[in-house]
Write a protein that binds this DNA or RNA. Structure first.
Lengths: 148, 148
DNA sequence: AATATTTGGTTGCGTTTGCAACTATAATTA
DNA sequence: TAATTATAGTTGCAAACGCAACCAAATATT
């Protein structure tokens, strides 16, 4: 049974929450300033890009990006409407859909990454050395579900 | 000029984002399961509690919990409607409001902390030693705006 | 002092989110 | 094989959020 957090734990927790909130806000703001869609869109298309021609089932996508199925459903609707991905009905499972990235999606991926990557550098990684980044990643990897 | 993130930086970034998403989801879920309001409510009332009898101006609250002014305005509306805080018109600034916590708010604070604290222990701090928690807090504290 | 600018706070509107209910297919059990 | 249960995905509704426009008081400018 885990013990109730002491002041050290609370301090670490507070910083984790706050860091993430600040960072996301800054990165989203950079994307918006560049006329690009929100981070969530990037998460989805980068997964699809990695998945290649075979694409992904919607529920796999949902697990990968930590989104509930109804949110996946609607987010994909928007992305599809804009032409960044395609939904195919699935042969091996009559209920399911298979989702693949389009050329236009690949292009968006590139354009987003140039801004997103720069934002990570500017707001995050420039403040830590390589060794520190590695330590941070190791620490966070100890939490269940973080490293996949 | 910050350099574009290398694979080490990206890895640390990805884990930070993912950790926070997983943790918040789990904690929120615990709160909901206990019939309690969302974390944001806790953030607000804990700030008010700390502020004591004098309370806080709305914009101060907004800075403390990283919420835009219109979101503060409406969140406080909900909390006020439920009786967890009171808004007084401000003497030293005729535009402003001053917000203080109520008894009922203090009570909610206690009830939420018993669940919230336990959730931090269960989902987060039990996986790291005290030294590791300190290291994590130190690393995150290097990012601008995180330690206040 | 009159005017312009900034700041604190609220609100209307469109978009996004969460929940619960729903359809349809697949897998399980009898 | 018929009946049950579980899984994939969608959708209606209500609550929450982002944006831009707004009001009112304070501060700065002339």
């Amino acid at each position: 049974m885990p013990k109730f957090p002491d002041s050290t734990a609370i301090r670490a927790w507070a910083r984790l929450i706050r860091a993430q909130q600040l960072l996301l806000e800054r990165v989203e703001s950079d994307l918006k300033a560049a006329g690009l869609p929100p981070l969530r869109w990037y998460d989805v298309i980068v997964e699809l890009h990695r998945a290649g021609r075979r694409g992904l089932r919607q529920f796999e996508l949902g697990e990968a990006v930590l989104l509930s199925k109804y949110n996946v459903s609607r987010l994909l609707g928007r992305l599809e409407r804009e032409g960044f991905l395609a939904r195919h009905s699935c042969e091996e499972d009559g209920r399911g859909a298979r989702v693949t990235i389009t050329e236009k999606g690949d292009d968006l991926l590139k354009r987003m990454w140039s801004v997103y990557g720069a934002a990570i550098g500017e707001h995050f990684s420039q403040y830590l050395s390589k060794a520190e980044l590695e330590r941070l990643a190791t620490l966070l990897g100890r939490l269940p579900g973080v490293s996949r």
